[in-house]
């Protein structure tokens, strides 16, 4: 099979009238929602320790002791789950020349003038930013988090290192929450995107408008993608 530059092998045209394009397999969607769920629970339990004004969030988990116990365990779930997503997605998130143009015309992006932007593959530079920011921050969070993990790793690093790890963990947590907000906002603001992660497909118009190179490549190989 020809090398694919803009799409995954599983992406395929599901129907032609109207056009619907399959974007994520069921297993990828499940993987995504486990990642999302653990990230949200991590943010809620972590924020409870972050600020006394948010300590009440421990109530969601059945108290401070349980939240303290659960948070790092969810961290491991997030890390493993994201690692699987990473393996599926990293290739199409590598930077491409058209990303530079996209970024320099960010004004047209926010005003919705996509006709003035280059045609794009499966991901635009914004989506790629979210992908790499999540990857980097999750790595920072797991490394610093393990150093803070009193229950199982209390003697792992000296206290001075633990202080630095704690500061870094708190900063990285704020950063990943900001990236998360941007991610959710973008998925919602670009109408028709959410269904890619719920039902697994998008409309032809959506693919034409936002990811035309991806659509061309998927359509170009007809419906011959491997069956799910």
């Amino acid at each position: 099979m020809a090398r694919l530059f803009y799409s995954e092998r599983g992406d395929h045209i599901e129907s032609t009238e109207p056009v619907r394009v399959s974007r994520y397999r069921g297993i990828t969607r499940l993987n995504h929602w486990i990642t999302a769920g653990s990230l949200i629970l991590l943010a809620l339990s972590g924020l409870a320790f972050f600020s006394p004004s948010l300590y009440f969030l421990t109530g969601l988990f059945g108290g401070g002791q349980i939240a303290r116990w659960l948070h790092p365990i969810l961290g491991v779930v997030l890390f493993l789950s994201f690692a699987l997503l990473f393996l599926q997605m990293w290739r199409l998130n590598l930077p491409r020349p058209e990303d530079t143009t996209w970024v320099t015309r960010i004004g047209d992006v926010v005003t919705g003038h996509e006709e003035r932007l280059p045609e794009l593959g499966k991901y635009n530079a914004g989506q790629k930013f979210i992908f790499w920011a999540m990857s980097g921050l999750i790595l920072v969070l797991i490394v610093s988090g393990v150093m803070m993990w009193q229950q199982f790793f209390d003697g792992l690093v000296p206290i001075q290192i633990r202080r630095i790890a704690t500061l870094i963990h708190a900063l990285a947590a704020v950063a990943i929450i900001l990236v998360f907000i941007l991610h959710v906002f973008a998925a919602f603001w670009v109408r028709g995107t959410l269904r890619a992660m719920t039902r697994g497909d998008v409309t032809g118009g959506w693919a034409w408008r936002h990811h035309r190179k991806w659509l061309r490549e998927v359509a170009g190989r007809g419906d011959r993608g491997p069956a799910e």
Binding site: I13, T16, E17, P18, V19, G112, E114, F185, F188, W189, V190, R191, G192, T203, G204, G205, W206, A207, W208, R209, L215, R216, A219, G220, G222, D223
Partner: peptide, 27 residues
């Protein structure tokens, strides 16, 4: 606030048609 009050970035009807044309031509 932006999520509630902005129009969002919507796909236009012509774009659905364009996609149908593209898919038909390629196939």
């Amino acid at each position: 606030l932006m999520g509630l009050f902005s129009r969002g970035n919507k796909v236009e009807a012509e774009e659905e048609v364009a996609a149908e044309r593209l898919v038909r031509d390629r196939e």
